[in-house]
Design a protein around this nucleic acid. Structure first.
Lengths: 154, 154
DNA sequence: TCAACCTAGATGATGTGTCAACTATTCCAG
DNA sequence: CTGGAATAGTTGACACATCATCTAGGTTGA
């Protein structure tokens, strides 16, 4: 490795800020979500994917791709959600190896109850603090970093 | 609850982008860190705190405060790091309940080996993708959100 | 001085994430 | 059609996070 290119002062300020924000924001959103519903952040993400599709049933691998989760993580998590009655498994007729994950009525009720409050949390903690220009820049930044991540074999 | 104030299109774009970026960036940084050193992201954070102080020893609660970790998480993690020889515990003479955590030579060597590569990862994945204005805006956004978090009893 | 309370930190149970190995099915070359 | 490779998904072992609880040592006030 050649000489390390350390961060400039401005970059350090941005990086430390980002790290701190990320940690605290994630934690606070998880707390508020769980306080007002029996859902974890992960549960929420899974349920969102299931409500996004019309038939409320998705193949496991499709879910893994959308969530960008490893299949084993997903499998474990789905097992727990199934035990809690939020989702159900169904056999896939066209490929006997595969399985559909189906949103149950309880799962649908849970996310419909949780979503408005979660949006409210996001708005209060993030968007109420930002100007429209900052919102646009945040989107641009995220897109630029994501592009970088998908270049470099992420 | 009154009517939900849903996110505007611009806000949705920013939020989805942020969520995706956050997840993928964290994962990729952790992978690169662990590939080039035997350190997890958490190990790294602990070691950074220890190198920041001159005597390389910090009280556990002080560490918890800086990292914003719960004491039990920290206690468990320090136990594992101690088993791996990265840190050591020392009794505190002035308060017999307390303990100092000391950076070992192995711990110092580990972080000194890992740091340049980690900085390089951050630079490559984040700052190389951003303009100086975007970096400044990112810092401003982080500060604004952190201020909000610390208002609302985070 | 001593009882009630507070604080520093460790511990054990449980839920969650990751990795490697495994099972069952499908695909495909010959 | 068959034997090997690829694919869908599960499982088990282990690292990690959280919560409640526990221990031991300090602090305070009557």
């Amino acid at each position: 490795m050649t000489e390390t290119r350390w961060l400039t002062e401005a970059e350090q300020r941005a990086w430390r800020g980002y790290i701190a924000m990320q940690a605290q924001l994630t934690a606070q959103l998880a707390r508020e979500l769980q306080a007002g519903s029996e859902l974890s952040h992960s549960d929420f993400a899974v349920l969102v994917c299931l409500t996004d599709v019309p038939e409320r049933r998705v193949r496991v691998l499709e879910l893994a791709r959308e969530l960008q989760w490893e299949k084993s993580r997903l499998s474990h998590h789905l097992g727990r959600m199934q035990r809690r009655g939020l989702v159900a498994r169904e056999e896939c007729p066209s490929d006997a190896r595969g399985a559909f994950i189906v949103l149950t009525d309880a799962g649908r009720a849970a996310i419909e109850a949780a979503a408005p409050q979660h949006v409210e949390s996001v708005r209060r903690l993030v968007f109420d603090a930002l100007t429209p220009e900052q919102v646009d820049t945040l989107a641009t930044i995220a897109e630029a970093v994501l592009a970088r991540l998908n270049d470099t074999g992420a």
